[in-house]
């Protein structure tokens, strides 16, 4: 019994709760438990016929299908092709975007010349350009690289431009006073200063690349996760479709994680750069 007194006691937080309760309430456990619970509910609902298995096959059957596709080697092939198209397209778009963004960011003249053109093309949904791209580059790999590259380009370009525009003027003043050449100013000032923005652009660009590649793989190819998804639609093999969707999600998440790690390593000069993440 505690007697009423005039004292206010400030004490360590009491932990009377049983151990299992603390484990359940930890955020890490919640983060894993919530999707698992959703899958279990899905499974039960599917088996009891509450939801139409033609559209939502049970998770267990999807996993069986996934294991089949893995053991036959088919899934790895599709994954590999998509990864290849995203990677090649990404560099095709990101490298010119970074270069042009840096140069334009520091040159009002070039900005005046190119900005209206780029700004006019930007609002077009990139995938709407795909028919034109296929006319120009055919049905093969090139057209897929190009459309992914275009999608990536705009994200990275505008982020780089914003990054250069946000460089503290004083750093450029220092460079000028110390006699830095234009090239030195790009390499030693503009590029590193804009790098956090460039990274954000690259992460957005990867997201766009995945959207675009899945649509582009509908045409002129028999490989890729996008093809897997479209084919399963045509033959009404919904489990394959879910496997494809799942793999696209995993691929996207994996790339984001890898880019986050790369960013933390490259931008170690910025405090707490590592905590920034889109997910």
């Amino acid at each position: 019994m505690v007697e009423p007194t005039n004292e206010l006691r400030i004490l360590p937080k009491a932990s009377h709760e049983p151990g299992w309760r603390r484990v359940v309430q930890s955020h890490a456990v919640m983060a894993v438990a919530s999707p698992l619970l959703a899958l279990i509910l899905w499974e039960i609902a599917g088996r009891l016929g509450w939801i139409d298995q033609r559209f939502f096959p049970t998770p267990s059957s999807i996993i069986r299908e996934l294991l089949d596709l893995i053991s036959s080697g088919e899934l790895v092939v599709h994954l590999g092709w998509t990864l290849q198209r995203v990677t090649v397209g990404f560099f095709l778009g990101a490298v010119p975007a970074i270069l042009l963004g840096l140069v334009m960011g520091l040159s009002p003249t070039l900005t005046a010349i190119f900005r209206p053109i780029i700004a006019a093309i930007y609002p077009i949904p990139k995938i709407a350009l795909f028919p034109l791209i296929m006319l120009m580059f055919g049905l093969g790999e090139t057209s897929k690289w190009v459309i992914v590259g275009i999608a990536v380009f705009f994200q990275v370009f505008f982020s780089t431009l914003a990054g250069v525009a946000n460089i503290d003027r004083i750093y450029l003043d220092v460079a000028r006073n110390f006699g830095a050449s234009r090239w030195q100013a790009y390499r030693m000032i503009a590029m590193p200063a804009a790098l956090p923005f460039i990274f954000t652009g690259c992460q957005l660009g990867i997201g766009m690349a995945l959207i675009v590649v899945v649509v582009a793989e509908q045409f002129g190819t028999k490989t890729g996760l996008g093809y897997l998804i479209w084919r399963s639609w045509q033959v009404f093999e919904v489990r394959d479709m879910f496997v494809g969707l799942m793999m696209v999600a995993i691929l996207g998440y994996g790339i984001q994680l890898a880019m986050g790690a790369l960013e933390g390593w490259l931008i170690c000069w910025k405090p707490h750069a590592k905590t920034k993440s889109l997910l």
Binding site: Y171, M188, I189, P192, A193, W269, K270
Partner: peptide, 8 residues
């Protein structure tokens, strides 16, 4: 003001 480069 602070003018040293934070990335170096």
């Amino acid at each position: 003001e602070t003018s040293i480069f934070p990335w170096m």
